[in-house]
């Protein structure tokens, strides 16, 4: 999914660069609410883990491969704002050190994988978690659906950008069909990896998973009854 330099014209790349910069600026504020002493180290590890798993291209037939994007997984593990930052760090490291994804396309890649994949992946996850009963299975089902949808959504977002600023004169409908179709298969792989990793973390440290906070029993939360009278007395 890493867009190379050249696919999109300069104005479109500048525009996605501005979108990416604005998104990161907002995320820097939002992430402060998600990160504390316990979750900050997990966020760093999640970014490193996503970098590693993104190297594992899996075959999807027709001589094609795909790899995890990780937007949904990261958002569910550490929160959506933090996920935007983690994905951006991964994409910057890939573009600068490994020439994976273009430098002028960095804003495009942050927009597609750091913004669209995170927003769609986490949005679908939250929606399903709200509709389904508060169980571990529902969290994993929501994660699977979010991960599955996030990949073709990012692919179609690219097609949208290509419609505006693609340098080649080709049929947009055909590009959309090809991109959307193949990325639906890659999305299935994304869902499988997301469920496997999230399931493992939920098994050993459910207390660290941002998207599973509603599964924790009330006794696991802050000792509010002790604090409430004190707060009242202070007034």
């Amino acid at each position: 999914m890493h867009v190379p330099d050249g696919f999109l014209d300069a104005p479109t790349s500048v525009a996605t660069g501005l979108v990416a910069a604005g998104t990161v600026a907002v995320a820097l504020r939002g992430a402060r609410r998600e990160l504390d002493e316990r979750t900050a180290p997990l966020a760093g590890l999640t970014a490193a883990f996503v970098f590693a798993v993104q190297m594992m291209n899996f075959p999807v037939g027709a001589g094609t491969s795909g790899h995890l994007i990780g937007g949904a997984l990261t958002a569910i593990l550490v929160g959506p704002w933090t996920a935007v930052l983690c994905m951006t760090v991964v994409l910057v490291v890939q573009a600068v050190l490994f020439a994976d994804g273009g430098l002028t396309a960095l804003g495009t890649n942050v927009t597609l994988m750091g913004l669209v994949a995170v927003v769609l992946g986490y949005g679908v996850f939250r929606l399903l978690v709200r509709l389904l009963p508060p169980t571990r299975t529902a969290v994993l089902a929501g994660a699977a659906a979010g991960a599955l949808i996030s990949v073709p959504a990012s692919a179609l977002a690219f097609v949208g950008l290509f419609a505006v600023g693609g340098v080649a004169d080709v049929s947009l409908g055909a590009v959309a069909a090809t991109m959307g179709g193949i990325h639906l298969f890659i999305g299935a792989g994304e869902a499988a990896i997301t469920v496997a990793v999230l399931g493992a973390v939920l098994t050993v440290r459910p207390d660290l998973v941002h998207g599973a906070a509603h599964l924790r029993r009330p006794t696991d939360l802050a000792p509010r009854p002790q604090v409430a009278p004190a707060a009242g007395a202070a007034r």
């Binding site: 999914m1 890493h2 867009v3 190379p4 330099d5 050249g6 696919f7 291209n57 075959p59 999807v60 027709a62 001589g63 094609t64 491969s65 795909g66 790899h67 573009a95 600068v96 050190l97 490994f98 020439a99 994804g101 273009g102 430098l103 692919a155 690219f158 693609g166 340098v167 080649a168 080709v170 049929s171 055909a174 590009v175 090809t178 991109m179 193949i182 990325h183 890659i186």
Partner: peptide, 23 residues
């Protein structure tokens, strides 16, 4: 194998518009 985007670009005939990254 080429990833989904590379493959689609080749299929749809815009793969050759990719440029080498500055890095």
């Amino acid at each position: 194998s080429p990833d989904g985007l590379e493959w689609s670009a080749e299929e749809e005939g815009f793969g050759d518009t990719a440029r080498d990254s500055a890095t």
